[in-house]
Simulated assay, not measured.
Amino acid sequence: MTITLDSRAATRTKIGIRDVSRVFDSPDGGPPFVAMDGVTLDVREGEFLTLVGPSGCGKSTLLEMIAGLTSPSSGEIVIDGTPVTGPGLDRGIVFQQYALFPWRTALSNIEFGLQAKAVPRRERAELARHYLDLVGLSGFERRYPHELSGGMRQRVAIARSLAFDPDVLLMDEPFAALDAQTRESLQEELLTIWEKTGKTVVFITHGIDEALYLGQRVAVMSSRPGRILTTVETPFGSREGDLRADPTFGEYRHHLWTLLRPETAGPGSGLLRVVTHDG
């Protein structure tokens, strides 16, 4: 079998991560804690890139730096050639925890980001309903988060991030807390949304199956301090049918596991999910 390693013809870079490191001071006065070291990665415009690695390798920290929620200790992150210096409405973020306002209805939660852009009230409501429909929740406009299932709450969170039309969608293990059936259903819906909107998506996961199923490319991170081991192009033009049963899918999964297995044995490297069906 031949595995393709990042050989697709070059397209415009949307996000440029240039020799980024992140170091944290030790709370007890000990040596500094190096979370990631020398990460360099380009994310192409309009691509769905998944980032997989062991727990604790710095995946979420890297996403937070792209979002502008924290800054690199060294190196630089640029979007469309402009350095990231803080949060911006060009980036939407979906976290593992739903982070919905419990006192707002589903519709009102989605409208929140639109208020920040000073979108008029009637247009806000129309856009919010459009994105509720896009994530399959028409008819749930007046429901509060506690009246929705976990999968439905995550749909609302995705709709809220899409509603203010960001160029980039950043997703930090958004399906990790869901049961296997709901997770696979939302993976399919997310790909449909991506195909419809053409957003640039960076999706963090520590599940190899999820990374392969969703990503046009899979970026593989080492254990702490996190570095990019390689990027792998996925060969799956269509996700129709039971892709996970395809022999090629199994071959790529085995290849990624071969890369990552030594990393899971390192100190503090945590666990890595090889298959999604059993979580």
Rank of each mutant, 00 (worst) to 15 (best):
Q181R: 12
I93V: 10
I228W: 09
A177N: 05
V218F: 14
F33Y: 03
V84M: 07
G38A: 12
D42L: 04
E195T: 12
H254W: 13
G136K: 00
V232K: 10
R227Y: 15
G46E: 06
R129T: 14
N109K: 12
M65I: 12
L190M: 11
R217L: 15
P145N: 05
T205G: 05
V232H: 09
S223I: 13
G29Q: 12
F140Q: 10
F101R: 01
P235K: 05
A180L: 10
Y213I: 04
R122D: 09
G151N: 00
E147C: 05
S223Q: 05
V34R: 06
T85G: 12
S73T: 11
T182P: 09
Y144F: 08
R91T: 02
A265G: 08
F249M: 07
V94C: 02
A99I: 12
V201G: 11
T61R: 07
Q216F: 00
G38T: 10
A177C: 07
A157R: 01
G30A: 07
V168T: 02
T200A: 15
A99P: 06
P120D: 07
D165H: 15
Q181C: 14
T182Y: 04
A219P: 08
K117S: 06
A128G: 11
I79N: 00
S7I: 15
E189N: 04
S269L: 03
G56V: 05
E173D: 03
V20S: 08
S108G: 09
P83F: 01
A35W: 08
T205P: 03
D19I: 08
L69A: 14
S55N: 04
Y213A: 04
I3L: 11
R244G: 07
G279E: 11
E123M: 01
G241E: 14
F249P: 00
F236W: 04
V218D: 02
S161K: 02
G250C: 02
S7P: 06
R239T: 10
E147V: 01
G46S: 09
S238V: 08
D90N: 09
S74V: 09
S74D: 11
P87Q: 15
E189L: 13
P72D: 12
L134A: 11
L41P: 07
A177M: 09
Y98I: 01
D242V: 07
V84I: 11
R273G: 10
A180E: 13
T2Y: 07
G237F: 06
S21Y: 02
D90M: 14
H130V: 14
R253M: 14
E141C: 11
A265F: 15
R253D: 10
V201R: 00
K14F: 10
L186G: 14
T61S: 08
V39C: 04
E210L: 13
G241K: 04
G136I: 00
K199N: 09
H254M: 09
L169R: 01
R121S: 14
L132E: 05
L212T: 14
Y131G: 02
L178R: 02
D25N: 11
L214D: 03
G270Y: 05
S161M: 07
T4N: 13
T13R: 05
V34A: 02
A10H: 03
Y144H: 10
M171W: 00
R129N: 10
S60D: 07
P120R: 08
E240K: 13
S185P: 06
S55Y: 06
R160Q: 04
L69M: 14
D37G: 15
I3D: 13
F24G: 06
S138M: 03
E251I: 03
E233N: 13
E123Y: 08
Q97C: 06
S108T: 14
R143W: 15
